[in-house]
Amino acid sequence: MPHKTFLAFILPAVIAMLLFIALPIVSVIVQSLYVEHEQVLEEVENCGPFGCTTEVRVDAEATAALKSADPLGRFNGLGTFFNRSHLAVSEIGVILADNDGLGDIAARIYNLPFYKALLFTLSYTFIVTPLGMILGFLIALSVNSVSQVLKGPVIFFSLLPMIITPLIGSLILFWMINSQGILGSALQALFNDPTLSLKASTPLTWLTLFVYGVWTAAPFSFVVFYAGLQTVPGDTLESAMIDGASRWERVRYVIIPHLGPLATFVALVQLMDNFRVFEPIVGFSAEANATSLSWLVFNDLQGESTQLFGSAAATSLLTIAGVIVLLSPVLVRTWREFSNKA
């Protein structure tokens, strides 16, 4: 296709992506270098019948004027990245210099908001992704081996947790595990502990979020693997049977290698999606016990009058860096394949 025709066809899509994906990333980079203006303070003398007192108060008008004159705020360089809410370099230095052993280091670092969110995000990504894929693979294998009657309903109902709006899906589960909801009270009865609440403890909150994650992630793996199972070469399977392979050996030596490339694809997609985990934290009101990188950005932006653009931007950039690290194996491999071809 000639360059000119190609350009004419692709231009709208490329412009949309440049304006609303590439440019915002630039905007995030710029914003991360600035920090909100300090509030303008003024000294006021209050004179009453009992003499005069001076008090310092915020000059709202002047603050607003400053803000509208220079909406980006003050230039702060890389300061935001290193402050307590982000990489917390000096705090980590203090912790490393003066601590009571590894456990103490871990506990104190975990108390820093960015590391707390990072830890949860990574745990969620690397626990939910493999578990979801394994569950999906097992469902696919089972559907493949049982009668056709179950196949339709399983596919139908499996699609629901996947396409459900994440916020709505987490709300539905949240209401059920609520201490007054059906699952919550069932668990209380099961452990004979009327005060048991999944919300209250950090490990249980994490567990709940992981369960939610697997619940929504498994169907995607299931559908893809199920489709993959239909393309397993029948000849190879049959020759494996004739060669004397057991059912498990057929799965191990024929089916799993056949699904390998698909599994890479599923893992890639799921890693990308799970890394941006955000809505379930809002839906489960879990922010006291579990926060994610995306949630930190959301939290900074949510303030009604004091949106912390600089802080949000810095977290965003660190998140983007995380995404690129996650994608790097794919990018490196693609690059190699490409330069080999050329």
Binding site: I21, I25, V28, L72, V297, L301, Q307, S316, I320, V323
Partner: peptide, 14 residues
């Protein structure tokens, strides 16, 4: 495609 949407949103707002 891998960019978390909220990070883009933080670029849009201002």
């Amino acid at each position: 495609r891998a960019m978390p949407h909220i990070t883009l949103v933080s670029g849009y707002l201002l």
